[in-house]
């Protein structure tokens, strides 16, 4: 399997970032970037990454199950991660998450039937001073309120 030329170039450079013979270092970044492009860490991705880094499948799967950002199942086009950890919880993160569930009609780790949105309650995103915070894919949204959330969803829907 091949990836986009940009990603291939990135991978080529990435593998060189680790000492000779220790290219396994590139495993987690490769899986994450491949997932960003493919949508999930599919069987094909596992095999391809294992092949390129000269790893056994089990070495890839050990990592795949461990890191929460990696997923075998494709997420929504917009993956919404809402933090409910301490600082966000104190400032309305839980209410925001519940609102999101109702608004999207899905629960934690659910995906809307049209595949547009998926939702996840996550641990601290490191945006505590701008709580409650959430991420849509890699984009942060700070000081969220249910109203701001609704506006965001609307604008994302319009982008389709």
């Amino acid at each position: 399997m091949t990836f986009s030329p940009e990603l291939e170039a990135k991978f080529a450079k990435m593998i060189g970032n680790y000492p000779p013979g220790r290219q396994k270092g590139a495993l987690i970044p490769m899986l994450l970037y491949a997932q960003d492009e493919v949508g999930a860490v599919t069987e094909e991705v596992i095999e391809e990454v294992a092949k390129r880094l000269k790893l056994s499948r089990v070495e890839v799967e050990e990592v795949l199950g461990y890191y929460t950002m990696l997923t075998r199942e494709p997420r929504g086009r917009y993956h919404i991660q809402i933090c409910t950890n301490i600082s966000c919880m104190l400032t309305g993160g839980e209410e925001l998450f519940e609102h999101a569930c109702r608004r999207l009609g899905i629960g934690n780790k659910g995906k809307t039937p049209d595949g547009q949105f998926s939702l996840e309650e996550v641990e601290c995103l490191g945006a505590c001073s701008w709580a409650p915070a959430m991420q849509v894919n890699y984009e942060f949204h700070y000081q969220m309120t249910p109203e701001k959330f609704d506006r965001l969803i609307e604008s994302l829907r319009k982008l389709q």
């Binding site: 880094l53 070495e59 461990y66």
Partner: peptide, 22 residues
């Protein structure tokens, strides 16, 4: 080097394991 979702990787030796692809 990007992580991929793990608080434990903030512990220095866990971070090193992660850096090595584990």
């Amino acid at each position: 080097h990007t992580g991929a979702g793990s608080y434990e990787c903030g512990e220095e030796t866990a971070l090193l394991e992660s850096l090595e692809g584990k």
